[in-house]
Amino acid sequence: MDLFGDPATWLPLAFAALLGLSILIYVVLDGFDLGVGVLFPFAAPDEKDRMVASIGPFWDANETWLVLAIGILLVAFPSAHGTILTALYLPVAVMLVGLILRGVSFEFRAKAPIRHKGAWDAAFYIGSMMTSLSQGYMLGMYIMGLEVTAFTLAFSAVTAVFLTVAYSFIGATWLILKTDGALQLKAVQWSKGGIWGVVLGMGAVSLASPLVSERIFDKWFSMPEFFLLLPLPLMSGALIVLLWLALRRLPTSDDSFAWFPFAATIVLFVLGFFGMAYSFYPFIVPEQLTIYEAASAPESLFIILIGTLFVLPMILGYTALAYTVFRGKATALSYE
């Protein structure tokens, strides 16, 4: 246990990294399938079936990353878990109701009498919206240190909208990858319409975080950190330019580069996430509680870590298997 020095130091860090990894994977994976739900009203009925088919085999596993993230928060940082979740009581409730609605709509829309399909489609859209908006709202509140003032509420309302648009963007890029024909063409249009949300959202968070916290300001704008961190915004900017150029040329006649917008968006999400993680480290409740103060007993963390090191590669392995089995353009879902 003392292999890497004091376990009270490296264990919380290891778990913060695991927590970050789970949240990141969740935001990317459930991000695209939530985004597909957000785009629902813009699609024709037969396109909706295809859109659901593109996420049907994945959504459940995607959502499990949220359970893992909340589980790690609960397990590794119990006091932070309590503080954050009680502070976000209402948005969490809204998100849960949203997740319930969309999760069951997947099944009901295909199994209920055909005359009810429209209602379940609406529930799927509403559920996706509630989930995305509340997650964006929670992101805003978290950045603002979980304090409720008129300004933080306004800021959180803005992040709620931007995150929803960002999800719809990654959802649209997923559809470019997984569909063809008229729907793919539509997806390209949706991506063009949504890219501003990503730009403004990342911009708003990047500007607001250092402005509300002197500590974060100093972390970014002191020497030599400023120059060391410079590649982060520069790469993000370059990616956005590349994305825009790609979207103007897609879809190509031989469907080459259909993967590019989705892949580029993932990288963009990763960059944005690293920026945020850097800003908030070592705090888990912004400016109140560090990961070291909030961590559980090392004995308990250690027994989880051992299991995690065995199981996580397996999870990643069979997740990869599922994406390989259902690779290529989405076809109608069938139990046959």
């Binding site: 049907g56 085999p57 994945f58 459940d60 596993a61 959502e63 499990t64 359970v67 893992l68 589980g71 790690i72 609960l74 397990v75 590794a76 119990p78 559980s296 007993a297 004995e299 308990s300 027994i303 989880i304 299991g307 995690t308 199981v311 996580l312 999870i315 069979y318 997740t319 298997l321 599922a322 089995v325 259902f326 879902l333 069938s334 139990y335 046959e336």
Partner: peptide, 30 residues
Amino acid sequence: GNIAGPLLAYEVMTAFFLEAVFLGIMLFGM
């Protein structure tokens, strides 16, 4: 939490992902 945490974590890691991922193949992969 020191007791409940690891038990819940093992549930998520050994059960939830297993069922969720293979459910996709079980339902739509025939």
